[in-house]
């Protein structure tokens, strides 16, 4: 087990974690502030990837494609919020789960109707193809580095937005005491639409950024959705800081576990089935982590105060 491999896997875990954060930030905000369980968050991510791929095919420039995807997903999010979700804020979580589950079915099938069942192509922006040598013997794809940087930048911007702006103050207030914010005369419905749009745009950004690395196909949002929920639950719902830390934790544990656990079990047991069991165990790791975190801290690592 070389140090280089460990370093690369750490970078990979970081990149995966940062991508999860882009998803988790929006979801945890929507959840924390609007008290809305949005299963369709993964669909917004998928649509972001599709928008990027389609716009790239149209303009021939992946960078333009990605830049187009962000406002497009934002707009889509606002429309979805306006048409279907607005009536659901006062309902219990169950209605929201069912309704947004319906949205998943709808969007997956819509993507199939619009773009076909097969995956569609999306290239890496010209300037960011290839790889860089970080230290001798350690090369890393430029695009993955770019994802890490963009993710960290977004985290920084979100931090500034939330702790240093008036909107951020309202968001924080909304996360800890919603009725009070409304009572103070804030236009809650506008705030909600803004927050939902922001979450959608972040999901769209995540989808667009990974589109060059992943298969852009109907249903691509489903696996990532579950992971995102795992992240925000571990982090504590409504907490951006929690989402950030949990994202990196899940990203690292998943990646490192996947790469070293089967090998470790093979060393220990020397049997053929060690490989299979190791792989299965690696898949379970993050769920075990989540169950453990919730066992000791039933409201996640960083539950917002005052609720």
């Amino acid at each position: 087990m070389s140090t280089t491999l460990l370093l690369i896997q750490t970078l990979n875990g970081l990149q995966f974690g940062v991508m999860l954060f882009l998803m988790a930030a929006g979801l945890t905000l929507v959840f924390g502030i609007m008290n809305l369980v949005n299963l369709a968050h993964g669909s917004l991510y998928m649509m972001g990837a599709y928008f990027a791929a389609a716009a790239t095919a149209w303009t021939g420039n992946p960078l333009l494609g990605i830049l187009f995807a962000i406002p497009a997903t934002l707009l889509l999010g606002v429309v979805v919020e306006f048409i279907t979700l607005r009536t659901l804020y006062q309902r219990d979580h169950l209605d929201q789960v069912l309704c947004t589950f319906g949205l998943i079915l709808f969007f997956n099938e819509l993507a199939r109707v619009l773009w076909g069942s097969a995956a569609i192509p999306m290239a890496i922006p010209e300037a960011l193809t290839g790889f860089v040598t970080i230290i001798p013997g350690l090369i890393y794809p430029k695009w993955r580095l770019a994802i890490i940087l963009v993710g960290l930048l977004v985290a920084l911007l979100l931090y500034l937005l939330i702790s240093h702006t008036r909107l951020g103050m309202l968001i924080r207030a909304g996360a800890s005491n919603r009725p009070m914010v409304g009572a103070l005369g804030v236009n809650i419905s506008l705030l909600f639409t803004l927050v939902f749009g922001l979450g959608a745009a972040l999901a769209g950004l995540a989808g667009a950024m990974v589109a060059p690395l992943l298969s852009v196909e109907p249903g691509m949002g489903d696996p990532i959705l579950i992971l995102t929920f795992v992240v925000i639950v571990i982090g504590g719902i409504g907490s951006i800081r929690g989402a950030f830390i949990a994202s990196l934790l899940v990203g690292l544990i998943d990646t490192v576990g996947r790469s070293f656990l089967p090998a470790l079990l093979r060393e220990l047991f020397q049997t053929q089935s060690a490989n299979t069991i190791g792989a299965a165990l690696a898949s379970m790791l993050i769920y075990i982590l989540m169950a453990a975190v919730l066992f000791f801290r039933p409201r996640g690592l960083f539950p917002p105060k005052g609720r």
Binding site: S2, T4, L5, I8, Q9, N12, G13, Q15, F16, R144, V210, L213, L214, M220, P223, I224, T255, V256, R258, S259, P262, N275, T276, G278, A279, A282, S283
Partner: peptide, 21 residues
């Protein structure tokens, strides 16, 4: 070397790094 991955796994960076090694 051989790796059994998760079904419908989106990210293969960890596996690719192992190939390189």
């Amino acid at each position: 070397g051989e790796i059994l991955t998760q079904i419908n796994q989106p990210d293969y960076s960890a596996e690719i790094a192992q190939i390189a090694a």
